[in-house]
Amino acid sequence: MLFFFVLPLLTTVVISFWRTESYTIIHDWNIDNYVVLLTKHTYLVFLGRSILMATAVTLISLIYSWPIAYFIAYAGGRYKLVLVLLTSAPFFTGIILRVTALQQIFGPIGIINTALINLGLKPINAFMYSNFASGMGLVYLWIPFMILAIYLSLLNFNFDLLEVAKVNGASPIKAFFEVTLPLNWIGTAVGIVLVFVPTLAASITPRFLGGVNGALFGNILAHQFGATGTWALGSAMGVVLFFVSIIAIFLVWKTVDLRRSGFTGGDI
């Protein structure tokens, strides 16, 4: 594991400090790649867009997942398992086939727009290769992670504590923010990270749903390893992406107070 996971990542870091010339890597230590990445307007714009997109997709997934995970864990009864498996089953289909399916719905000639045209109405621009469409697609792809993370956390949550809160004067909303959310914050944080990280690096979804103007950082990163063959620059992009992910994970982790997670609580 160490060999096949950490070493390749380290190699990428090393290469990002070299340069590529006509498809070959030159062992020549420099930081030009980073200088380019951090000064050139285009790259920063792409990075900014990716961060914005990842934040938005994470927030939407978060807000949508909580009531659903709660409902399944609280009221699912004997159907809990089916209900939660149903939310995660599409995840296994793989990105490319799901994007294919999504294009048929939200794409420019997806069913929604074709229906509108057939009814003599204007097609919705939002579905014509836009950031909105790729955002929807990304939520579609990654929301199962969020639901699963929150659900698994809620499985080990003692719902009786809510009764305690209510008897002690907490309204349902207050009880949620005082008891439910803090005690399930680790699960929620894991969900946030699991959605944020892949969305940040997304390249396929924006390519097929976002179109030309919807390109994100992941697209230009993929480009360096495809057509242009500028591996060193691409590696530097990978490193930047990795660092942004790490920073995001760190920021989320900062909000977790292990002592207050309830994990150490044992059998209270």
Binding site: N158, D160, L161, E163, V164, A165, K166, V167, N168, G169, A170, S171, A175, E178, V179, P182, L183, R259, R260, S261, G262, T264, G265, I268
Partner: peptide, 21 residues
């Protein structure tokens, strides 16, 4: 009235202390 408007105190079985507080 819902429980949170009754102004009563209660001691629960198994204590049910909030583990994060």
């Amino acid at each position: 009235l819902p429980p949170y408007k009754r102004g009563i105190g209660m001691v629960f079985q198994d204590f049910l202390l909030f583990p994060h507080k």
